[in-house]
């Protein structure tokens, strides 16, 4: 995926972009439909997301994470500004008050590729119930209270299981460093 995105950034390669679109477009649409519950808006926001990928392909930094993670943040920000009419406050690394990290890890590109692999394995290893809880709570598909009802669990239990699962995923990533 990173290679396809690179072809878009450096050569404006439409064939490469179509491949990205065929892979991510349907996922972005599912995400937008979950968020908006509106088919027309989901389609529009999906197209907006993918055109942003086309425009900003050169801003993708493999050291910062996977292509999926990058496209997710684009979709997320578009959803927030279009539907919630709210700004998305973000830090600015070029601001004179910004505090940079003291040490940069040697090969962040490699580290983030390994992170992604570790994470994929860790997600596979989660008990199915936990995986489903995490997945559905992450994309505000339904409120925690509805999940609790559906799974026949007290609300507190649902919240603590989600928290545990996320902690487990993060621990896997930290252990690799």
């Amino acid at each position: 995926m990173a290679r396809l995105l690179d072809a878009v950034a450096s050569r404006r390669d439409i064939a490469a972009f179509e491949k990205l679109f065929r892979h991510f477009g349907p996922k972005v649409k599912t995400y937008m439909l979950k968020q908006t519950k509106n088919l027309h808006m989901a389609e529009e926001l999906m197209q907006e997301t993918m055109i942003t990928v086309w425009r900003k392909a050169d801003l993708y930094d493999a050291a910062r994470g996977t292509v999926s993670a990058w496209i997710f943040t684009i979709a997320r920000n578009l959803f927030i500004s279009a539907c919630r009419k709210q700004k998305r406050p973000e830090f600015d690394p070029n601001d004179p008050a910004f505090v940079p990290a003291v040490t940069e890890p040697a090969d962040v590109g490699l580290a983030s590729r390994q992170d992604a692999e570790t994470l994929r394995a860790a997600l596979r290893d989660l008990p199915p119930e936990q995986r489903e809880l995490v997945q559905r709570s992450f994309f505000s598909d339904v409120p925690h209270s509805t999940l609790a009802e559906e799974f026949g669990l007290p609300l507190g239990t649902v919240k603590s299981r989600i928290r545990m699962a996320i902690a487990k995923l993060r621990k896997n990533m930290e252990d690799r460093r």
Partner: peptide
């Protein structure tokens, strides 16, 4: 934050693809 965004990215990757016809979208 990068860890959380990586987790969100993986979960996003795991979303089922919309079954709508993407031909006209493209």
């Amino acid at each position: 934050l990068r860890d959380f965004e990586a987790i969100a990215g993986e979960l996003f990757e795991g979303l089922p693809a919309s079954t709508d016809d993407m031909g006209s979208s493209w």
